[in-house]
């Protein structure tokens, strides 16, 4: 009997070694362990054994059964692994084929840089003010200390709508509108379109964008102007950026200045971008002229303020190495999709 049991185990093992699929494996299981299987058939003959032999043979039979079962499960695992392996190898794809992409639109480059600037100033506690593009001469010039026949009007060739209305030549009129409607402390930027009668070429456009800034409070000094704009420049161009103020003239600020940043390409050493100077002019600004504060309804003996203006196209051209202003308004999709 013992030999027979061992024989069954041996045969089962052999059969299991030979199976090549899970179906074959099932057949082997039935053949040896099934109700009508060989092991069961042997056990049915247990009755013929002596009472002493019976438990020993019985134990042996159980051992053999569990050994075969273990072997089956091992084989099953191996077969499955092999099956899976085969499937994977059949399913191999060429991963260098192009991906299926979802189309996403591109932000206009001017918007990208504008949003960057807006975020910096929002972070510094500024809000965003707006004003009309078709504007009164009063707000665009008179209230900004630029009376009729003032030479400063020459540098801003103006599109007129009528004697008293025009397309704003700068975002500065928003300063006055804000002064008229808000009480200090005031901390705003005002981005928007401005218009000048310049024929189109690589560096001129009859329409472009400025970002105006205005801060009015008690005790505002030129030191605040410098501190604020340095913070702006560092966030826009990196921590190592320096700013340089040069005296200049704007009718509505006094003192006035132009503000250069250290060249972000050569770090001030001098290169083609900064024309060897190490500095790039990006801003104009100054202390709001007390006359202008007064015109805006704010008492210059109590409050002081600073204002500044940035050209968005200029910032954007530097940011993306764009050399022709016309590209912004041609909107060629091959241009837009680069951003």
């Amino acid at each position: 009997m013992k030999e027979q049991l061992s024989k069954v185990r041996e045969l089962a093992y052999e059969a299991l070694e030979a199976v090549r699929s899970s179906q074959e494996l099932d057949l082997v299981r039935v053949k040896y362990l099934g109700k009508k299987g060989e092991l069961t058939a042997l056990l049915k003959q247990m009755g013929k054994l002596t009472a002493e032999e019976r438990p020993i043979v019985g134990q042996l039979a159980n051992e053999i059964r569990s050994q075969i079962e273990q072997m089956i499960s091992q084989r099953l695992k191996a077969l499955r692994a092999a099956d899976l392996e085969e499937r994977l190898s059949k399913e191999k794809i060429d991963v260098t084929l192009p991906g299926v992409r979802h189309k996403i639109g591109s932000k206009h480059p001017l918007t990208i840089v504008l949003e960057e600037v807006e975020e910096i100033f929002l972070g510094l506690g500024f809000s965003i003010a707006e004003g009309p593009e078709v504007e009164l001469d009063y707000y665009n010039f008179e209230a900004l200390n630029i009376p009729k026949n003032h030479p400063a009007r020459d540098t801003q060739d103006t599109f007129y709508i009528s004697e008293t209305t025009l397309l704003r030549t700068q975002t500065s009129p928003v300063q006055i509108r804000v002064m008229e409607t808000q009480t200090p402390p005031i901390r705003i930027i005002a981005p928007g379109r401005v218009y000048r009668s310049d024929a189109v070429d690589a560096t001129h456009s009859p329409l472009f964008h400025q970002i105006e800034g205005l801060v009015i409070d008690k005790g505002i000094t030129m030191g605040h102007l410098k501190g604020c704009l340095e913070a702006f420049a560092k966030r826009l161009y990196g921590d190592e950026t320096k700013i340089r103020l040069r005296p200049h003239h704007f009718p509505f600020t006094e003192p006035s200045c132009e503000i250069d940043v250290s060249c972000f390409r050569c770090k001030g050493a001098g290169c083609g971008m900064c024309k060897g100077e190490g500095w790039i002019e990006i801003l104009g600004g100054g202390m709001v002229h007390p006359k202008v504060l007064k015109t805006g309804g704010i008492d210059p003996e109590i409050y002081s303020g600073f204002a500044f203006g940035v050209g968005l196209e200029r910032l954007t051209m530097f940011r993306f190495n764009i050399d022709d202003l016309r590209l912004f308004f041609e909107n060629d999709i091959r241009f837009l999709s680069q951003f």
């Binding site: 000094t221 030129m222 030191g223 605040h224 501190g227 005296p247 006035s256 200045c257 202390m287």
Partner: peptide, 30 residues
């Protein structure tokens, strides 16, 4: 203010200390 510009120009804009804006201001989009 015009006199102040003359003073500032020759005092040197570069010699004016930078000061950070202080006070609480709420910067947010409408």
């Amino acid at each position: 203010a015009d006199l102040s510009e003359e003073i500032a120009r020759f005092y040197g804009y570069e010699n004016i200390d930078n000061v950070a804006l202080s006070g609480i201001a709420e910067g947010m989009l409408s």
